[in-house]
Amino acid sequence: MNRTLVRLLQAPSIILLLLWMIVPLSMTLYFSTIRYNLLYPEREGFIGLENYRFFWTDAAFFPALMNTLVLVGSVLIITVVLGLAISVLIDRPFRGRGIVRVMLISPFFIMPTVSALVWKNMMMDPTTGLFAAMWNAMGWQPIEWLQDMPLFSIILMVSWQWTPFAILIFMTSLQSQDQEQKEAATLDGAGFWSQFYNLTLPHMARPISIVILIQMIFHLSIFAEIFVTTSGGPGVQSTNLTYLIYIQSQQAFDVGVASAGGVFAIILANIVAIFLIRAVGKTLTV
């Protein structure tokens, strides 16, 4: 192939992605510095960082930032710990292993809006939900999950969806672990924990960091689960940054402030992205 042809073939993907990135990004940056509210079209003009200040000092900003961090952090801990434990548990031959694997990874493929509705209506409903039935059977007062502990409920739903992701990745990585090494360790009298700590964990270090980074990218922008179940409430107890920006733009119609929030979200995501891209880059051979 000559060089012109090579360039020509590469051009569409590069140009399109460049446009896809530059155009909306610069529009967001521009909107974030002007007065722009769809309800008050007569107010306009450059206002510098005023939108940022407004977003920053909004009473909902700090709770939303905290909720975002708590949500991402808790889901990460739950999914990685559970994912590791479960994938080690099924990393042995036994009858029905295929079915067990399929059942374990299925929640990951359920669309987020469906999973949110199933949990909201059928699991967590305080009168007819399954949890209520379980609580009643134990003689306890059923919990109003989405009212009393909205953020925890969402953490539960998201963890149910993403633990399977961790299992899927860890399961695959475990299969590439050196079995002879493990057998040798067993012969030398190394117990389960010492094998796990000295052989399995080092082998899993990379997949674990990849799982953490990818989940962070996705969980920083959790939307559907909140939209369908709590709408960010009660109050702002389960509002994360994504949902807060969505409210600013779609309900308060304040494009300027929503864009300032968007810039904030982009910066937050990029901090994570740098690490992820480095991790991926190490494995890419050109």
């Binding site: 590069i14 896809w20 967001t28 990218i217 995501a269 992820l276 050109v286």
Partner: peptide, 30 residues
């Protein structure tokens, strides 16, 4: 099949566009 010294950077850059949170470009796309 015709990698150059820039190929890896291009791919990594492409990947970085995937990290752009949707909510960050919500208004422009809308």
């Amino acid at each position: 099949f015709n990698p150059t010294h820039r190929t890896k950077d291009i791919l990594m850059w492409m990947l970085s566009t995937k990290m752009l949170p949707a909510v960050g470009v919500l208004m422009p796309i809308y």
